[in-house]
Design a protein around this nucleic acid. Sequence first.
DNA 1: TATATTTGCTAAAACGCTTGATCAACACGA
DNA 2: TCGTGTTGATCAAGCGTTTTAGCAAATATA
Lengths: 359, 359
Amino acid sequence: MISQEKDSGNAATPDVPVRKSRAQPVTLREVAEAAGVSTATVSLVINKKKNARIAEQTRQRVKDAIRQLGYRPNAMAKTLVSGTSRFIGLVADGVATTPFAGQIIHGAQDEAWKHGYALLIANTEGNRDLETDAIAMMLEYKVRGILYSTWFHRPTVVPETLREADFVLVNCFSPEPGAARAVVPDEEQGGKSATEILLRGGHRRIAFINATTPAPARDGRLQGYKDALEAAGIPFDPELVLEAYPDQEGGYGATEELLKRNVAAVFCYNDRMAMGLYDGLRENGLSIPDDMAVVGFDNQEVIAAHLRPPLSTVSLPHYELGAAGVRMLLGLDEASNDSAVKIMCPAVERASVAVHSPA
Amino acid sequence: MISQEKDSGNAATPDVPVRKSRAQPVTLREVAEAAGVSTATVSLVINKKKNARIAEQTRQRVKDAIRQLGYRPNAMAKTLVSGTSRFIGLVADGVATTPFAGQIIHGAQDEAWKHGYALLIANTEGNRDLETDAIAMMLEYKVRGILYSTWFHRPTVVPETLREADFVLVNCFSPEPGAARAVVPDEEQGGKSATEILLRGGHRRIAFINATTPAPARDGRLQGYKDALEAAGIPFDPELVLEAYPDQEGGYGATEELLKRNVAAVFCYNDRMAMGLYDGLRENGLSIPDDMAVVGFDNQEVIAAHLRPPLSTVSLPHYELGAAGVRMLLGLDEASNDSAVKIMCPAVERASVAVHSPA
DNA sequence: TATATTTGCTAAAACGCTTGATCAACACGA
DNA sequence: TCGTGTTGATCAAGCGTTTTAGCAAATATA
């Protein structure tokens, strides 16, 4: 890396961007001077205005100057004049806590990018003060809008300042109806799909280990379970619904109760629970899926895909949630204030349920 | 929510921000007019310039106007005049793929925030084109600098355009020495710490299941393992080093070979491997930690903390990596271009290694 | 040849803010 | 009465763009 003199008096400069090693950035004006035109012309060339009349020759001269100088437009100045920024804010309460938030970010990012927006993210870990600061920051950057997301599906009270911007709730919703646009996973459909995996496996007596912790997921998945049963003409038996804390320990601890129910198929509230249940089942000398077919929920990759046997489950559509949130914000998707838009949770079938060869 | 008329002729307006429901944002000028002062004065009040002389009364008037109108400064305009933006860019190759990247973001966020910077993130999923676009975007927003991070520790070639900005490599490094500042986990120390957990457990014959995939982690952890052994006066036995693909299946598959080695303690390249090994061990009727003490690496929460028994492991300091990256970028931490700064990997002891009561 | 039209480009205002230079008003000591 | 300070506030330039109105030259039309 030989530093290159910029004296006009030196030998012919090669057609290579002269790396200005982090001095003042090159401005439009400098490009204009280099090309011997006005800044207006340069601007027109850059933005390829179709109704602007620029001689091909001039256009080339400008382009060369741009390349030569390694010009980068100043986005700040741009948005200042245009009045509207190209930012979308994303405030999340748990990027760190779970892999889930990462997927939301990812989906939002991709979709935002697609429409020429950059993501301004803020992780609040649930801290309300941080949250307020984060929103203030985004407001000051005049974001196009804000995605307010939570790491698990839940009701939330919309922070006051959020209302100063256009916003969409992602993976959460406001309890007071009509207060906000929102996009959430379709828990009922998910619960139904999960149960149907078992149904397709030929099972008619299916247990459901629900969570003890109140949440939309808890109610929704249960409802989905009931719906699936009903659709299959199987009467709902409350005896077959257990409850446990929704993690590995909970699943493990539920083993004994489950075995009392004399079932050969179980739908677990989530993958972590299923993981614990695997251990419990194994300790009882039971094999999966032969002695017990198991279905989880969440499709937590690290777990579900690598359990032995790999776990059939239902995917929480975090990526889609993020993407849909952006589309809704941008007004690309229809959305009402009255009820959250539900995103479907696709089933992911692996080996923890044996395929059923119908007699 | 009654929309509030702003006519000057109406009754005394309550001291509450009149929410401008997303019309044009309020500007400095409007505040100035409302307070009956010049924009300069408002600016001075807002930025609490200490050497500016403003009558207490005026100051109040301005503050009231600000509150009244719900004024939010325009960050774009601000940075435009100041010349330096308050952004730090973070390009990551795998926010989605792993929970790890999330931690890097989190750490970077917190540290950046602490110094008044906002994070501009871009997820590239390893796509070089996306990466170039992302960097260009950041350059246009005149970021203070860019953190270039990878989801696993590895050498990387620095994208050309990255050099246009101030940058720091996070969780990766440039093979050509002196090319870039970088911050990475201290694999050797980590490997050593992991081995020491076993040593403290009273074990002298310790196996190491290394990864088959070449990586700094593979070499570093092995070296750390050797160092720990040497420090304990135990000769290194190549027979005790196995290799497997670094995931659950790999760990499971390594069980047989491991048992041939006649050891009662094993250090696994990562937690996922340990998870698989747990299964293998259990199938052989072996109990952890009594028949086999196991230590992992990575401290992947979902797994390590919830295995049965919970897994002793070593933490990959992703949060710290992100934070240190920001500090290095800002010149708060010393940093040389010649070798990456190493961040320590702290041991996390759980129940997969029995405590040793020294005789 | 005179006039209308098209082409190629520029001047200058505006976007919302910061800041150094100024300035008016007033108080003080000589 | 006059300098000299001090206080409280304003003026105006400038940050890097975009964009509209307009101008001069070239070309087409009659």
